[in-house]
Amino acid sequence: MDISIVFRIAAVGILVAVLNQVLIRAGREEQAMLTTLAGLVVVLFWVIGYISELFETVRALFSL
């Protein structure tokens, strides 16, 4: 696993959190929620392969 993905997820998390605050203070709660959702989708897209890999490993480990 490439360790840089952890830093990328952290960067996205920080930026989305700041964006969220900026939008909420401007009274745009809907856009703030959409930004958070978009960030979540992007991060899920990155980690979905690793999650799948984890499940495969668990299945192989316990011979399920």
């Binding site: 960067a11 996205v12 930026l15 989305v16 700041v18 964006l19 900026v22 401007a26 745009r28 960030g39």
Partner: peptide, 16 residues
């Protein structure tokens, strides 16, 4: 808001 969004949006796109 737009000034902050400009910088933050750019950073987010660059990181992604």
């Amino acid at each position: 808001m737009y000034k902050s969004l400009g910088v933050l949006g750019g950073l987010l796109i660059a990181v992604i």
